[in-house]
Design a protein around this nucleic acid. Structure first.
Lengths: 223, 223
DNA sequence: CAATCAGCCTATCAAATGATAGACTACATG
DNA sequence: CATGTAGTCTATCATTTGATAGGCTGATTG
């Protein structure tokens, strides 16, 4: 359980734990991140963590919940929208990159290979798989409609996924880049996929109308 | 030191350790991979590892040495070649993907974020940085020559790097994909970058002549 | 045959790790 | 004032981890 040992949390420490843990998880991985490291990053003693979270896994579960659940929900919104597959993919890349950049949590870990294998994180594997499958679905329907070149949709999906997995490196770049990158990145990837690259600007415009469907509100601390 | 405790190794166990360790490192990370897990995967007792390698770190160092040193060398070969930047990038993506696929080691770990941070792996960070910088150099010279669209070269580089980081997922795919993926992947990425996408086939042909410069021999066991 | 050595094994160690228990402090409330 | 509670702390525990030490076996060589 992620419920605090006691009543209502007011200190903000719980959220600081999530933020610091997300950074450590992204660089050290789940098993490679110790509770002592998290505690030190937050500035509390290691056993204090267990006032806020029942165990180490609960920290990670909460992070995944805040990241993957909105992402999959947003992607599902895109799937049902009345728009071309290319616009959907554009919106996905732009929206997801924006979302990652705007998140207080460093969510690189969400797509790490480790996450796909650790027994503790098994419940979240399904969510990652869903995200990938829905991406693949958009690509395939783009190919069926002729908007995208024929080719292995899986390969295109790897290009998207690989790129998004690095989206958090953008947080290390300057503000000018941060503003332009989501859209520029989407354009770069789409240009590689479109059968007719001259349609890119149309796609871009169409995608702009879709963005609100994708970018969920940044998760707020609970309660 | 990576020298065995005793004389000449003949059993092949050392190489099996490297292979199994590479897989575990790719999925669990360095700190998350225990020597007991490696030993179990090889089918020996945990302390037996230390007959073959002086410590855990030495295993990883050897893997990095086999992976990164040839990659950077191959990339340096491409840089000095008389060829267009686009052909160089095409050859890089195709060649690196091929090399990863042909390697007996699962080299996903080489580009993990963890690798960029663990103090034990610091000496290899420089090699990774070199690989990235040389990739960036090719992209930038493609932009200067007009072959590639203007845009943030860093962004293009992230797309390449992100994709290559996932290249090892291809080992999980069927043989038909394995054969076509390196070239198809390169084409997909280049199409997104080229100012004139109609030049793609020329680039592809030019790159074919470059490949021998990039793909180093798969490392053989030492001694 | 004896000696040597590669390549393992079991037992063990020191240190690290996630977690528990009890205590303490500061603050809010009745 | 007393009481309750959030939120920390130190001390400690059981387990895990990388590594060492000593021993054993089988194959090879002289």
């Amino acid at each position: 359980m992620t419920a605090p040992k006691h009543g209502k949390e007011t200190s903000g420490t719980r959220d600081r734990i999530l933020i610091e843990a997300s950074r450590l998880l992204s660089t050290n991985g789940y098993r490679g991140t110790t509770t002592r490291e998290i505690a030190a990053a937050v500035g509390i003693s290691q056993p204090s963590l267990f006032f806020h979270f029942s165990n180490k896994r609960a920290i990670v579960e909460e992070l995944y919940r805040r990241d993957l659940v909105p992402a999959v929900a947003g992607l599902e919104n895109l799937i049902v929208a009345e728009a071309s597959p290319a616009a959907k993919l554009f919106a996905l890349i732009q929206g997801e990159t924006t979302r990652i950049l705007d998140s207080p949590y460093d969510m690189r870990a969400h797509i790490s290979y480790e996450a796909l294998n650790d027994p503790d994180l098994a419940p979240f594997r399904e969510l990652i798989r869903q995200f990938d499958d829905l991406t693949n679905l958009i690509i395939r329907s783009g190919q069926e409609s002729g908007q995208f070149d024929a080719g292995d949709p899986w390969l295109a999906q790897q290009m998207v996924s690989g790129f998004l997995a690095r989206a958090n490196l953008f947080v290390l770049s300057d503000e000018v880049r941060r503003q332009s990158h989501p859209e520029e990145a989407a354009a770069l990837i789409l240009r590689g996929l479109l059968s007719d690259p001259t349609t890119l600007d149309e796609v871009r415009s169409e995608a702009a109308a879709l963005l609100a469907r994708y970018v969920p509100d940044v998760p707020t601390p609970p309660d």
